[in-house]
Design a protein around this nucleic acid. Sequence first.
DNA 1: CATGAATGAGTCTTCATTCAT
DNA 2: CATGAATGAAGACTCATTCAT
Lengths: 202, 202, 202, 202
Amino acid sequence: MPVNLNYKNEELGKKELILLAAIEMFLEKDYYQVTVVEIAERAGVGKGTVYEYYSSKEVLFRECFSYCTNSYLNSFIEHLNKTSNVKKTMRDIINTHLQMLSENRRGIRLLYKERPYNFQELQNWVIEQRQTLLAGITELIKEGIRLKEIRSDVDAEMAGRIFLALNYVVLGGIIVIDEDEVRKDQIDSMLDILWHGIGEIQ
Amino acid sequence: MPVNLNYKNEELGKKELILLAAIEMFLEKDYYQVTVVEIAERAGVGKGTVYEYYSSKEVLFRECFSYCTNSYLNSFIEHLNKTSNVKKTMRDIINTHLQMLSENRRGIRLLYKERPYNFQELQNWVIEQRQTLLAGITELIKEGIRLKEIRSDVDAEMAGRIFLALNYVVLGGIIVIDEDEVRKDQIDSMLDILWHGIGEIQ
Amino acid sequence: MPVNLNYKNEELGKKELILLAAIEMFLEKDYYQVTVVEIAERAGVGKGTVYEYYSSKEVLFRECFSYCTNSYLNSFIEHLNKTSNVKKTMRDIINTHLQMLSENRRGIRLLYKERPYNFQELQNWVIEQRQTLLAGITELIKEGIRLKEIRSDVDAEMAGRIFLALNYVVLGGIIVIDEDEVRKDQIDSMLDILWHGIGEIQ
Amino acid sequence: MPVNLNYKNEELGKKELILLAAIEMFLEKDYYQVTVVEIAERAGVGKGTVYEYYSSKEVLFRECFSYCTNSYLNSFIEHLNKTSNVKKTMRDIINTHLQMLSENRRGIRLLYKERPYNFQELQNWVIEQRQTLLAGITELIKEGIRLKEIRSDVDAEMAGRIFLALNYVVLGGIIVIDEDEVRKDQIDSMLDILWHGIGEIQ
DNA sequence: CATGAATGAGTCTTCATTCAT
DNA sequence: CATGAATGAAGACTCATTCAT
């Protein structure tokens, strides 16, 4: 599982170096099992230096989490903004999501590992992000209804929730938990079910 | 958020008393943020007593987790075993799931909170359980196909994954994250989409 | 290493049963590494029962130690009282000592293992016992001088100290540390040196 | 009982500071009765600092013990290497030994107090050291035989054991247990007995 | 008498954080 | 800016002892 946090290999400042090292560590272990010393070592800096850039371990973790969440969200938002064909947009989102997961680009898997339930503030922020995302997808669904791609009697919000669940749980589950590849026919099946349902046609 | 772990209020042995107290604590906080003293206090026993029954905090956590997972799985299995009408069975599963979640019966929410990635053994066990569950649901879908309730060209495993995702993320998300009730019309919408899809009928 | 603490196998009361079990345990491990539960288990009684007979672990240890020390001392005293030929008495003492060590009769090895430096009172008692023993041996040496078996210009006390050291360290060392048998020729060599010294005769 | 572990009072690093403090504590009390906090306090450092230098209390104890044993052994070895007159060498060894004991230089008394029976590895090491020492002394005795200072029919190994017993138990006993001075006439008596034995000259 | 469930004082150990260099 | 030596708060765990049965 190669971690590819900085694929463009730009010149990195100490601050970002530490951030990326921290993400790698938080991907390997629990928040509580990662020590600041380990992060410093992986970043190749001294222990004290971490505190030059991040006032505490908790703050550092927050930044890691935001960083990853933002990457994730942005890839969604990007697609949502240039929609013309809803079905195609959905497929694009799925593909981008899959690619991020399989490349573990920008530590996307952190979202699957760490649940910052103990940092109330961060938890609230996550919920907010989720709402934004859901709102965006719901809007996409409504656009689909307008474009007559989607049935007009569909509950747009529920459809949005379901679409997110498919991305996050179905695809994520296969890759992160089963540690398997997602085959193209699986995506087709998934989209087929989303589009036509599983019910026998009367 | 009233926790109702022992709603029948039977006589409890010290061992179960401690288990239930621990579940409550693990529901409130991280594994690492819950102290053994707190668990003991909530159970109304001395610190040492916890160790009379559980050899370590880790062991106690495992037992909490198994206890909750078993409750959860059993409720699924129960329904899977007495299927006649697949659609109805699905609805029953959803309802039971919802009820467990809203009553937080038997600490079901623990499954949403804690991910013991650091206890490899437990993690493996969780994955195994998940496979079993998925296999059961896949079988249910296949039964549906045999009974001609479900389209014969549906990918049964994918449909199973989706059904689980809907239960776990859509319903769980509403209750645990949004801390909202799930309305009957939301379930209807969800099942409608699962059954008919969202695609416009050509 | 068969432990033979109660070779006469008389009917034993609970109190003595516990004492002997404790000696066995203290022979195997440090005072601090032996737990009261272990002692109780080995004695085949309940944990609480130990406290019926001995008010604390420390008290129990003292009794173990006294018991062993007394056995040891008595065997010396016995020989010291019926002296006619000093050289023979010395040999008898040595043989008895050896036998006790090799049979580990009455837990004699406890004296080699535990040094209760932390129980000041017990420590004082040990010192006292040692003085008594030394006095007895010194007296034996003086008797030897009177009987003209021993040189009249020998420092009796020093000779006594040396005789004890030979028993305790030379013989004990071979058996307890080297875990070897003491051969008859070794005793002969030892006594030969004690009697004639190692110096070349001018 | 003034402890004089660092009589030259050189500049000490934190690591040695802690070591010497620990030796002092282990001289006063049992391994199990000495707490890490006490050691830290005596060394004038924080509790955590102890762990910067020694990974555990056990490791620290081992180092204390080795440190003391090495000092002790070295003083013997030193003398054994520059022998010309065996009787004189013995007297030198005795004197050095006495001096170390009375000055308690480098925590020599630790060897009399602590018996690390519970640290098997350390125990084995002690036995090994003892063998080395015995071998050295035995060699010295043989040298004495070659030089015709010592009777040729003396059992060299037994004579070695006895010489060690005289040092360790007779002299050590007087100083450490009786807490007395060793007078010159006592040494003379001891050596006299070693050389000529106690037997009446026929 | 005998028991063992219950207890909490006491320890080792970890690790985030500080700060002098 | 960068560092890492120093620190102590915090927590898991042990075990001698008590006491209700």
